[in-house]
């Protein structure tokens, strides 16, 4: 296709014909986002939470975090035992997953949720997925429950709440086709 000699009339006809071809058979690649949303792959790097029982408070995640989004909080649990747990500032997080990968005990629980919306700046900062008050209010500690499920449930402020889930499929003719898995 590369070469300089070109018939001008053929060039105009080709260009117009290609335009008409796509006009007649539109090959739309748009994902109508709030109405439809993608079912992401298993390894998609979305929001994550710390499994409290597995975490040993070693601070490696804090050390490796490139934007310094993680800071270790000194907490006291119900038994009066002191421990360190990571607090994640979602406003800084770049989802590189260095913290997830460096964890020696695999204490991070990952999810494919990437489109959680926050109403205010203070909600960015979370421990175990629960928003912290700013300045850090240590008296209002979260109780140590598994927060993982809360990321998978569609939260009310989730922009894609109630949307149709679609699966992207590669296609020789159309590049990407979005299929509704629920429909025949």
């Amino acid at each position: 296709m590369t070469g300089r000699k070109n018939n001008r009339i053929k060039g105009h006809v080709d260009a117009l014909a290609t335009g008409f071809k796509y006009l007649a058979e539109p090959n739309r690649m748009t994902l109508n986002y709030p109405d439809e949303s993608m079912n992401l792959k298993d390894n998609y790097r979305g929001f994550f939470a710390v499994k409290d029982k597995t975490c040993i408070g070693c601070s490696l995640c804090e050390i490796v975090c490139p934007p310094k989004a993680i800071s270790m909080l000194d907490l006291t649990d119900a038994g009066g035992k002191k421990k360190k747990r990571p607090m994640i500032d979602w406003g800084l997080c770049i989802f590189c997953y260095f913290c997830v990968d460096i964890c020696p005990t695999d204490a991070f629980q990952t999810s494919q949720v990437h489109d959680k919306a926050f109403y205010s700046e203070t909600e960015y900062q979370t421990v175990h997925g629960e928003p912290m008050q700013y300045p850090y209010d240590y008296s209002k500690r979260p109780d140590y429950k598994e927060i993982y499920e809360s990321f998978h449930d569609v939260a009310p402020d989730d922009p894609s709440a109630g949307s149709k889930k679609v699966v992207p499929k590669f296609d020789k003719k159309r590049g990407i086709k979005y299929e509704h898995p629920g429909q025949p």
Binding site: G19, Y22, L23, P26, N27, R28, M29, T30, N32
Partner: peptide, 13 residues
């Protein structure tokens, strides 16, 4: 709309 159809998108919707 015509431009959008040619350009793999929906246009005003």
């Amino acid at each position: 709309k015509v431009a959008a159809k040619t350009q793999l998108r929906f246009g005003p919707l």
